[in-house]
Design a protein around this nucleic acid. Structure first.
Lengths: 190, 190, 190, 190
DNA sequence: AATGAATGAGCTTTCATTCAT
DNA sequence: GATGAATGAAAGCTCATTCAT
């Protein structure tokens, strides 16, 4: 939706507080009042952004994962994909979108938003669970606790992404990918 | 320093934007004007907080690491320590300090602050380098790229800490520790 | 008319400023735009409400007064009626209609509305004039100035009604009626 | 106080809603923010105005009433005073102050303000009670219910004042005074 | 050095009104 | 005729910062 797009651009560029409704309206080419026909408040825009972003993330990962490849290949794919998209974002105009999402998550963490941060995250963690399960069943992975490993895996990927943003100038991507994969795969492979 | 302490408490409790200079002054038991004798602006307070927090973190880790134990034990220690302190923070009154630090980092990332986020982070990554080096030299660790592994390690720990905050109710700590250690150690051990 | 009814309900419940055109439209079960087909502006709705309210009031009093009873009985009737309807309003759902009318009168007093507050009020005062005249002619009332007495009488009744609203919990109605009648009748009777 | 004075002028001139904080600040020769150092909200200004206005009214009436004159003379005085000050206000620059007070009372009636409209009014009614009591004791007044008569008396005076404002062009003041006094005194005198 | 009263830019939000459909 | 999406002026309120004391 046009407004949400403009809001994301604005918040990404200027941050949650400095990005004003007026700017979003101008960016969307509409009047300020119109925004309030579609969103009850600035906070609701935050919530919708989180939902959209996580839903897109969810969809993207589900597509990576639903195919017939074996779990090891999938895990490699996930890591590659994370790094690739992180770097794409870092190098494209969407550069600040990552920090915007983090800002909204911190906002949701602090304030009682309608959107449950817990739920949204659990939803994401759950994506990885079938892969891990499958890997264990196939005798490829160690018999780790599926929930815990998924949680840790996503937290690693997220932390890695975050620091990539903070530091993205300094590293060679291929080398990073190789090291990441080496660590995580060793961690899970029998 | 009294002001910085009050500022950290205030920002942790209320967030960077909602935490006002007035509140900090009241919390510190001084006048609003006095704060401006020690800091040029609210932004400078952010910067000083980052410096202090990362310096304390630096000191704490340096102490963990400077002893004579072997690298494997140190790595285990680091992971335990990270999880323990994260949980301590999550369960103590300092609960929100973690998100405040993240908020300031995002702030520093977005705005051109005097404090270089890069430098501060590089400083932290560097803590881990000697351990890795030592481990490799001793033939205990795989011959990974020291810089890259350190970067990844801290980004993992940070992401893990962040998600612990978002989700800290849901997990059993001992199980988490065991899984974390298993992953990271397998990743690095020969 | 449906719109006017909805407007009165809305303004009574929410006040002149907080009662919005949107609410009136919803209450009337029509679109916002439709209201502007029947009224030029919110102000015109105020004006029409005043007209309707005062016309109803006028009709009600005219009916009380047009019968053949003697002036003394009519005067008693008027006082009873005023108190009864005031209390009815105070105790029914229309509780706030009285203050709405007062609000509109103040509005009309302040702003140059098309509706002349003067005229509307003069119209009401004039209701009482025939009774007073009749009473004087019949030798029952003192030879007061008819216009002045009517003006004062209605201002008394209005002030009384207003304060009944502000204070309606605190008094016994029968006692109030008796005292009111005693004062006003003594004031006019020879 | 300077702000309260400016607020009263502004609200009197422009009404409660159209009178803005910006205007009050300009009128008072101060910045907008300064107003919020002394008042928590626009509503609190309303409340303080009511308190001040009723307190002044209270003081003025107390002075009229505390002297040694007999109750009949006092009652006459009260009526004269009410009409005189009403007319003074109507003809001076304070012309709209009366309707402002009424607006605030309606506001207080509708919204749950900190100021209790009931209490403030009861306080005023109570002013008249000693006179009535004294008059009854001295055998000058009928043995009316003191509370009720006081309530009615003030409601009459208030209603009369209100209508004077709505209609003040049309009447001869001396004639009004005479008629008012005649009615009210007959109503109470034995 | 310490203060806090004063400030005004800047924010979110509301809502009467318009007008293309 | 009926509609409601779009609008933007306008409002109350906040708060980092200044500066006279």
């Amino acid at each position: 939706m046009k407004i949400l797009k403009a809001a994301m651009d604005t918040f990404a560029k200027q941050g949650l507080e400095k990005g004003t409704i007026a700017t979003i309206a101008r960016e969307a080419g509409i009047g300020k009042g119109t925004i309030y026909q579609y969103f009850q408040s600035k906070e609701e825009i935050f919530e919708q952004i989180i939902l959209v972003v996580f839903d897109e993330m969810f969809q993207a990962w589900m597509q990576l994962i639903q195919d017939d490849w074996d779990p090891v290949k999938k895990l490699k794919l996930i890591i590659d994909y994370t790094i690739d998209t992180t770097l794409d974002m870092a190098q494209s105009g969407n550069k600040e979108q990552f920090s915007m999402v983090m800002e909204i998550m911190l906002y949701a963490y602090r304030n009682n938003t309608k959107i449950s941060l817990d739920k949204v995250l659990q939803h994401i963690y759950a994506i990885f669970e079938p892969i891990i399960e499958q890997g264990i069943l196939k005798g490829l992975f160690k018999p780790v606790d599926v929930k815990y490993f998924s949680f840790i895996l996503f937290s690693f990927l997220d932390g890695f992404g975050l620091h990539m943003f903070f530091q993205y100038r300094h590293y060679n991507n291929d080398e990073l990918k190789r090291t990441m994969k080496s660590i995580i795969l060793k961690g899970i492979l029998l």
